[in-house]
């Protein structure tokens, strides 16, 4: 339910993009660039690089809009996936070092006045839902998602059995879905 906010408009926009409408790309950018830029800065921890990748994301969306498959997620999720994949690729080209598993054991960053002022109920619902997960599940999910750490890498780095890591990640994601399904619908 948390994804319903702009689904209809997004689908129409992506359809226009798939038909070659460049104005629609600009509108898509206006709707999602803040979300994607925040995501990219969080993954890359580097604003200039995040700006570069943000451009690439929308160029890729322009080229690949016709491959979007709504049965696998929302347009916003599709864009997040492109952004994450490109950012993780960049992370992996950097020397795998200190950044790999650092910085994610801290709790989620507090909501900034900017985010609060945005009135984005979806963001707040998700933030609350993530914070409701047990710390050991949330931590692994964030390491995997934001740092691109594989489950095998996390098991090795944290000295945990691979099965334990897989169970925690899977259970956390399933719980997240259930919690968000119960969250209020965005308006």
């Amino acid at each position: 339910m948390y994804i319903q906010e702009s689904l209809q408009g997004d689908l129409l926009l992506l359809d226009r993009v798939a038909k070659g409408d460049q104005c629609a790309v600009g509108e898509l950018y206006d709707l999602h660039s803040r979300l994607l830029f925040g995501l990219l800065v969080r993954i890359l921890a580097e604003r200039a690089e995040a700006e570069e990748v943000l451009q690439e994301v929308f160029v890729q969306a322009w080229k690949r809009a016709h491959t979007y498959d709504p049965s696998r997620g929302t347009p916003a999720g599709w864009l997040c996936g492109i952004a994450r994949n490109r950012a993780i690729d960049r992370l992996r080209t950097r020397a795998r070092g200190a950044r790999t598993l650092e910085g994610v054991t801290a709790p989620l960053p507090p909501e900034t006045p900017e985010a609060v002022a945005s009135g984005n109920e979806r963001h707040r619902n998700v933030h609350r839902a993530l914070n409701s997960l047990p710390a050991e599940q949330r931590d692994l999910i964030e390491r995997a998602y934001f740092n691109g750490a594989t489950q095998s890498e996390m098991a090795l780095d944290l000295g945990l059995p691979l099965g334990t890591v897989k169970t925690r990640v899977r259970t956390g994601l399933q719980t997240l879905r259930r919690v968000l399904d119960r969250a209020p619908v965005d308006q």
Partner: peptide, 9 residues
Amino acid sequence: EAVGVSSTP
């Protein structure tokens, strides 16, 4: 997808 949305815009 929701994890991605959790990032501060």
